[in-house]
Design a protein around this nucleic acid. Sequence first.
DNA 1: AACGCATAGTTGTCTATACCAATTACCATT
DNA 2: AATGGTAATTGGTATAGACAACTATGCGTT
Lengths: 242, 242
Amino acid sequence: MVNKQSPLPLYYQIEEHIKGLIDSGGLKPGDVLPSERELAESFNISRMTVRQAITNLVNKNLLYRKKGSGTYVSHHKFEQSLHGLTSFSEDMRSRGFEPGNKLIHFELSSPTEELVHHFSLQGEDLVYKIKRIRLANGEPMAIETSYIPVKLIPGLSQEILSKSLYQYVEEQIGIKLGHASQTIEASAATEDDAKHLQLELGEPVLFIQRETFQDDGAPFELVKSTYRGDKYKYKMNIERLR
Amino acid sequence: MVNKQSPLPLYYQIEEHIKGLIDSGGLKPGDVLPSERELAESFNISRMTVRQAITNLVNKNLLYRKKGSGTYVSHHKFEQSLHGLTSFSEDMRSRGFEPGNKLIHFELSSPTEELVHHFSLQGEDLVYKIKRIRLANGEPMAIETSYIPVKLIPGLSQEILSKSLYQYVEEQIGIKLGHASQTIEASAATEDDAKHLQLELGEPVLFIQRETFQDDGAPFELVKSTYRGDKYKYKMNIERLR
DNA sequence: AACGCATAGTTGTCTATACCAATTACCATT
DNA sequence: AATGGTAATTGGTATAGACAACTATGCGTT
């Protein structure tokens, strides 16, 4: 169940275990969990560690607590939709499409004025320019151009890009991603868009620009994406309206 | 500083104290806090209680921790930008435009099949159909068509619409709004769009559809909006990327 | 000057315990 | 059957301490 020798923190293992029960249907919305004291005894760990795991899941809206009564599985579990924003692949899978990538451009280039300003670059600083076609079931769905300062990831390679860039950055480089800011607008397909996305010149496209920041607030990445207007809808949930 | 006799939890008092320091400028973005042990000693409470306070502030993105280094004040403390989503007026004001409305259609109509299904209507149930032009500095910015089941607000009038519908609903009817679900897509201006928004036929527009729900999960409103593609960008923030 | 190492200081994880506050279940009285 | 009180159960708050993981810094060696 849980492994005290594992390098993974115990509270994290408990979190994953409970998440697994919810995903598998072993715990359904509205169900009550065993009490903190019971969980602590059955896993043979202290109650405070169980609380740490549960607190994290409560903060993620997967569980909610009722004092004097118990801890229950939430009914809304859609805060996850934000996660999909970082990953085209997960977004497509959730819509039932098989995601794909085609790298069409990868270079170290000198930054434009916009990039110098956005990343607060100086002197001879370079940026990676990564341009990809995003595919859904083999059909082109979007063009994505990403800019990252070279000094943040000195050894970036196509090898790494073919896997998960974000995982590499978090685990190997130790950069933690914090928040992001996005703008979404309707535009007309340029000649380049039309060529890569199999559209006519001037057809409507969705242009999304995302600025990603590290958890200390320093900028990490700038992504400009153009999605086919006829095949892609951006979906989002808003939690509280107050 | 902190009062052990107060009914307020100690960790909460610490939270408020630190928030106060940030608001007053005593702690600026990037500044490092005293270490958890120092804080514990100076307040004469245990380190775990200090940690609880700091953890809450980290979850609110006011602080961030660096293992082995210290705890720092975040640079970005932007509030829920989600609030603006419910109100065109606030959205425009935050961009420096003066918002305006022009009601061009208000009727009780029999629902389409889509609406029957969405609101789970039956028999003779009717819906309000409210169509408005949204203005920014007097210029047309969007067309908005809103549908609400009549049985939810039996006495809706143009009088009420000219003020704040949401305020009326919450305070007079007692309906509490919960979450919303939105899709955003790029489209081409229809003849009707072109006429009202002073565009050419086929020009790109941003089409936004929002489904609003009450806090018990029952549907409340369906809004379909068409924004000028050349003058409007949808802006959003994403808090945590994990 | 540059490098490596030891060290002190910091947050991260975990335990064991205690008492408080809210809810629930049960039982006796009415 | 309804009421009210009591006990058991549950989450909430708080303490004290231990060790691990990591970072920054200063010092000595090269």
